[in-house]
Every structure is written in C-alpha cells, then in structure tokens.
C-alpha cells in the first residue's frame, strides 16, 4: 500500500504539481517585473510631486495618490474579478495563468509604489538639502541621492512584495488562475486529496522561505 501511495503521489507530483509550480514562477516573476517597473516609476512621481517633495504639484500628487489608494483598498480576489472586463479585452480571456498577471501586476504596482514612496521618504532630508546646495537637479537628487541611499530599502520592498504576490497568485487560483494555488484547491481540497493539498502547502512554504533567504542575502550584500 505504501508503494502504491508513493506511485500515486509521484504521478500527481510529476504531471500536475511540477508544471503548476513553474506556472507560479512565471506568474509571480512577470508580476514582480511589471510591478517593480511601474511601481518604481509611480514612487518617483509621488516623491517628486508630493507637497513636501522636490517639485510640489498638489493636483498631480492627489490624483496619483488617489489611484494608488483605490487599488490598494481592493482585496486581491475582488480586484481580479473587478478588472475581468479589462482582462478580457487585453489578454483575450479571464482564466489561466496569463489572465491573472494583469490584475496581479496592477495590485503589485500600487503596493510597491506606496512601499517605495515610504522608503524614499526615509532618506535624510539633510542629504537632499546638501544635494540642492551644490546645484543638483530634481532628477539627479532622485536617482543619485534618494534612490542610491534607498537601495537596501528597495531590496526589502522587492522581497516583501514577492512574498505577498506568491500569496496573491494562489488566491488567483480560486478564480480560474493557474499555478500551485489552483492545484491545492482543485486537486487537493476539493478532491479530498490530502497528499496533493499538503504537498502544495509545503512547496509554498519552501518558496516563501527561499525568497526571504535570497532577499536577506542580497540585502546584506547591498549594505
């Protein structure tokens, strides 16, 4: 019976779990690339235009701030459902791995934008004043001073948001997204197959641990 159990388990592992783990990697990877890219741009704009910023533009800041807050106020599951008309237009479908990347990236962008904005705010204002005193431009202050001094903080944000969106991608599994979350739910929980469920849980645990360990390692290197 033991041999039979493991044969069964291997079959699931090889045919279902491994491809779903790779799908999760692709989803989270794409989400983080897009989220970090757009989130970074948004954070720079928020820092530039904020009322205490380098080039205060109250209106622009309020619009950006409002967008970021609005997106962040949606729980990820609701956001996936809410943007599904847009997803259908852009991706062509609302189910599967690709369809999930769009709402996840939108959520990650606003999450990362706010987290990076806070990191940038933590840079000593006296450094910014010093940079102004030798005639640095606003963009030079952002990139050569604020971003440069925030590198460890940026790495923390990236680590934290990667873990948050590994979780996000499994939630997406509940509404037709692929990946390890969908397997845990469909093949594990709903099929009363505990071995698949807990294998998936264990793999998620490993993913989060590995992400944190890699993040910590890069953080230390960057100091």
């Amino acid at each position: 019976m033991n041999v039979k159990f493991w044969q069964e388990w291997w079959k699931f592992f090889e045919k279902i779990i491994v491809p779903s783990v790779l799908a999760t990697f692709r989803m989270v990877g794409a989400t983080m690339v897009l989220g970090l890219f757009f989130g970074f741009i948004l954070a720079v704009l928020l820092t530039l235009f904020s009322p205490q910023g380098l080039n205060p533009k109250k209106r622009v800041y309020r619009v950006l701030d409002f967008i970021v807050n609005t997106i962040r106020s949606f729980p990820i599951l609701i956001l996936i459902v809410a943007v599904s008309p847009l997803t259908r237009k852009v991706v062509g479908t609302t189910v599967g791995e690709k369809a999930v990347i769009l709402p996840l990236s939108i959520a990650a962008t606003s999450f990362i934008a706010r987290a990076l904005e806070n990191t940038f705010k933590g840079v000593d204002p006296q450094l910014i004043e010093a940079a102004k005193s030798f005639g640095a431009s606003d963009l030079q202050i952002i990139f050569r001073v604020i971003v440069k001094e925030s590198v460890p903080g940026i790495i923390s944000v990236a680590t934290m948001s990667t873990i948050a969106y590994i979780a996000g991608s499994t939630i997406a599994g509940a509404v037709g997204g692929g990946g390890i979350g969908a397997i845990a739910l469909n093949y594990g929980y709903q099929s009363f197959n505990d071995s698949v469920l807990y294998t998936s849980v264990f793999i998620l645990f490993l993913m989060v641990q590995a992400t944190q360990a890699i993040g910590n390692w890069i953080y230390k290197k960057s100091l």
């Binding site: 000593d124 010093a130 005193s133 030798f134 030079q140 050569r144 001073v145």
Partner: peptide, 28 residues
C-alpha cells in the same frame, strides 16, 4: 554652483565612499 555649503551633521551619502562623495557634485 558658485556656492559651497557645509552642514552640522556633514550630510554625506552613507552608501558612497569618500571618493564618490566628493565626486558627486562634479558628476551632477
């Protein structure tokens, strides 16, 4: 550009070495 300024708490960038700190205005 024609006016240097120094501060009570030095205001150096911690993540740059001495060379890079001094070079920063020139790079800008």
């Amino acid at each position: 550009r024609d006016m240097g300024m120094i501060f009570q708490h030095f205001s150096l960038l911690d993540r740059l070495d001495v060379y890079q700190n001094i070079a920063l205005p020139l790079r800008c």
